[in-house]
């Protein structure tokens, strides 16, 4: 870790100005990922601008029934919030499936979205990694690949995004509110994270110095009837092998009026399974119909010996998640 200059931000605008003006400056939130990376040498800023005490820690109900979540709301507080539990169970479930109780007390909403891949090579500065050091190569290709992507990977990077919350937010069409030097902009979750292409160093569409200030959750019937399921090695405190965030809205006959499916552990970003969603609209939800829809989405999957399991795993888990939601399960 290089020597560091530390600034405690007075307000969001000045924090943005400080970081925008210094390519070696970073925002510090809960610190659960950044402090880890400082110690590993994965990132070497010379200046930290601490935004963790800025008053972005409110969960406010919006006039249209939606929710505005301040970027500094801690993961545990968001999961415990009555409105989230009631109106966006997939968000609460995704949060509770991630990390540990201690880390959830510490990690922020904004920081969770910005956490970086857990690829073993990304985290080890003695190995080549295009995401950490552009142009050095991808060690995960031909290396350890159990957690690698099966959708949307590139020759430059095959890793996956580690967040559970982000998958939940992708399923409910959340909007990320961002403050930059030029003012505020609103980014739909689907456009927030990106696929690696030939620029894997860029996890998101944020510019340097842009600060996540809030996340907005629109109210919807699919969000109210939603859940999150995660397959992993350990029963707790483990990153996803694959995960499924899903919500459904059925008509009186039990046909799908609307459905949302997002997958974790399969791509460089939360993977919104739009093809599968489209295939299910107007249909009855059965294991067969969901499997078929998931397979259509997975037609584009590229696997190897180490990742082949992810295709049947995410297909099966999607079938289970949606059919149990249709049956009225609460988890």
């Amino acid at each position: 870790m290089k020597e560091l200059t530390y600034h405690r931000a007075e307000d969001a605008a000045s924090a943005v100005a400080l970081v925008t003006g210094d390519p070696d400056a970073r925002f510090l939130g809960g610190g659960t990922n950044l402090v880890d990376h400082l110690k590993l040498g994965v990132t070497s800023p010379t200046t930290l601008v601490d935004v963790s005490r800025l008053p972005m820690d409110e969960v406010a109900e919006l006039p249209d029934g939606g929710l505005r979540v301040g970027a500094n709301v801690r993961n545990s507080d968001l999961a415990a919030h009555p409105a989230v539990r009631r109106g966006w169970p997939v968000v609460a479930r995704a949060l509770l499936a991630g990390a540990s109780g201690q880390i959830r007390n510490q990690a922020t909403t904004g920081g969770n979205l910005l956490q970086r891949t857990r690829c073993v090579y990304f985290q080890d500065v003695t190995t080549p990694c295009n995401k950490r050091e552009p142009g050095t190569g991808c060690s995960a290709i031909g290396g350890y690949g159990r957690y690698n992507a099966v959708l949307g990977a590139s020759e430059a990077c095959v890793t996956t995004h580690p967040s559970d919350l982000a998958v939940g937010l992708a399923a409910v069409d959340a909007t990320v509110v961002v403050l930059g030097a030029g003012g505020e902009r609103r980014v739909p979750m689907g456009d927030f994270h990106r696929l690696p292409s030939d620029r894997p160093e860029q996890d998101t569409t944020l510019a340097h110095g842009e600060l996540v200030t809030a996340v907005e959750l629109p109210a919807s019937a699919v969000a109210r009837r939603s859940t999150y399921r995660k397959a992993r090695d350990r029963a707790s405190y483990a990153f996803a092998l694959v995960s499924v965030a899903a919500g459904v809205d059925l008509d009186d006959d039990g046909r799908v009026r609307d459905v949302r499916i997002a997958w974790g552990g399969v791509a460089h970003k939360p993977w919104r399974a739009a093809v599968a969603e489209e295939a299910l609209r107007g249909k009855f939800l059965s294991e067969e119909s969901v499997r078929e829809a998931a397979e259509a989405e997975l037609a584009a999957a590229v696997t190897d010996e180490q990742t082949a399991y992810k295709v049947p795993m995410v297909r099966n888990l999607t079938a289970l998640t949606l059919t149990s939601l249709a049956e009225g399960a609460t988890r």
Partner: peptide, 28 residues
């Protein structure tokens, strides 16, 4: 869980921490 994965290209155990070399947690 336990599986120390060695990269043949470098002889390096890449699962070199407790997030990637899993040992049983309480829930297990």
């Amino acid at each position: 869980f336990e599986d120390g994965w060695r990269d043949p290209r470098t002889g390096h155990t890449v699962t070199q921490d407790l997030a990637t070399y899993h040992v049983a947690a309480h829930a297990d």
